[in-house]
Design a protein around this nucleic acid. Structure first.
Lengths: 311, 311
DNA sequence: CATTCTTACGTACTGCGTAAGAATG
DNA sequence: CATTCTTACGCAGTACGTAAGAATG
């Protein structure tokens, strides 16, 4: 009996595809196919129904999943408890939101490498929505992103909060008075892709003030958004601490918008039943590496005291 | 991660010796040593303390035993539930008492081979006491012997009962009247080794009648005992059904001893937590293969109705 | 016709046993 | 000095990836 075979079966069954399992396991599909065939020969039983193009788990295979899950879970726990941290091998797939990757991600990566020198990191930067989806499908072990993932299947670790503010080029001269959504809806707004958390935040803010932005540009990253805003194309929503330099030099200015933007909470989320116990340990490392503020979320609406940003 | 490594560690830890584990696992001690070293490298932790001649488990190793036990248990269960009976591989070590090996053991062996063609049987005939000891130490998976093994760690399956009777050569002419222990203690008694169940039974019978046999010969098997008795050397205790031929031909006769011998219960016993789930299945096969009588044990003292013996 | 699984084949590696070595009580 | 674990070495079987094949929707 071989744990690798069992793990391969587990993922093939769970992901519903040999190809997906191969991807998840850093192997080729031919290898996955072989491993499962070996398992079937060993048990002398059909685990997958291959009559259609996509292999589907048989009822017996479904029973096997239960055992596989328990065994792999135990094995993961065992490695976590018995193995020295430095000797932890394997892969960890971490999905990160852009803001994190441009702030403290490098520090986290260094820290991970220090603590788990044998661990292979696979970083993926994408929109929060896609990251969460991949987490749910088991393609990612850990997601560092804004918001929380609902459901009991996941364990979330807060990473602190980040303040966003409306910014634009001073050249836009929108005045120094309070700017409501209805005021801003006349401007062009620069946001990330429609599916992004960023975009959702912006739409929510406008609808809170019974407004709707009419001209909206979308781009791929906050850096691009900022440079578009600098050029006077429109207003955009940016994390304050990442653009100190531009604010100081007068390339960007913070608009006196109302209602003020609530601080956005970031969390590290992993599957509760992950076979990768390191996911939780790395979530903790992420908390330690994070330099996001720690604003209690109970009163998000009130303006947070100015904090000494390190970037 | 490798289950074989884990199993090797488990047995080395449990048996307290690499050599013993090697024996138990059908491997060489060099292989056991290697597997454990690999495990230690994998965890980057010391599992055994080799400062003395015999390797002793470290505290960390003791923790690992818990995990290993759970995982191996689950894996065994999985194989039992998922695997087809015909495909069950591996070894099964069965200890049998002599009476069984000269009655229905061949039938059982054939049946096992029919049901589990890939299973390697290792049969061991020995005194009940030694068999039980080996079972307790984990050297045997299953024991077919008289009596019951006390303790919760074991699961016993009744196999039926066997009647024994005092026999001797008719030439001894002990008369037709009832023979009490006090009568028989004058004769030479032929028994198996002092440590045997047989020997204990005989001593118990005598002490029940406040007697003690003075001249006692011991020999290695029931066949030898019977042939010694036939030659007129003394009386002995034999299972009735195994010596029909000798009784019919007048080479042996049953003595009218009192109190009559209770029927002896035989059981199949295996460790409750055995990683060999087949042990229990084979115990069931043994029950089916057994043609020992099924006398309810509540009234062992009363003479059982004559049963049609098949041998 | 793109996708999904299977098969064939060559290579690299891992795991095992034999045998010899070192240490211990 | 016998027993117990470790090390060295060579062989054999296994596992993997590449690449090509077959089937399905």
């Amino acid at each position: 009996m071989n744990l690798k075979r069992l793990e391969t079966f587990y993922w093939a069954a769970k992901l519903g595809s040999f190809t997906a399992a191969a991807d998840r396991l850093n192997a080729t599909q031919s290898t996955v196919s072989m491993r499962i065939q070996e398992l079937e020969r060993e048990f002398d039983a059909e685990l997958f129904d291959r009559s259609q193009r996509a292999a589907r788990v048989t009822p017996l295979g479904r029973e096997l999943i239960q055992y596989a899950e328990q065994i792999l879970q135990l094995a993961a726990e065992m490695r976590d408890h018995i193995g020295a941290a430095e000797s932890m091998p394997g892969f960890l797939r971490v999905g990160v939101a852009e803001v994190i990757s441009i702030t403290w991600l490098p520090r986290l990566v260094k820290e991970i490498h220090r603590r788990y020198p044998k661990l292979q990191l696979e970083l993926e930067e994408a929109l929060t929505r896609d990251l969460v989806e991949k987490l749910e499908q088991g393609y990612l072990d850990l997601v560092l992103a804004p918001g929380r993932v609902e459901g009991h299947h996941f364990t979330s670790q807060p990473l602190g909060t980040l303040r966003f503010a409306w910014m634009s080029s001073p050249a836009l001269s929108l005045g120094d008075g309070e700017l409501t959504p209805k005021d801003l809806q006349k401007c062009s707004v620069i946001a990330l892709a429609k599916e992004s958390y960023h975009h959702t935040l912006i739409e929510d803010w406008f609808s809170l003030g019974d407004a709707r932005c009419h001209r909206i540009y979308t781009c791929k990253g906050l850096g691009v958004a900022a440079s578009l805003a600098q050029s006077g194309l429109g207003v955009t929503l940016l994390p304050v601490r990442c653009f100190h330099k531009e604010l100081a030099s007068g390339q960007l200015k913070i608009l006196n918008a109302t209602p003020p933007f609530p601080a956005i909470e970031f969390t590290a989320t992993c599957a509760s039943d992950s076979f990768q116990p390191l996911a939780r340990s790395v979530a903790q490392l992420a908390y330690e590496a994070s330099d996001f503020e720690n604003i209690p979320l109970r009163s998000q609406a009130e303006p947070a005291a100015e904090h000494h940003d390190r970037y």
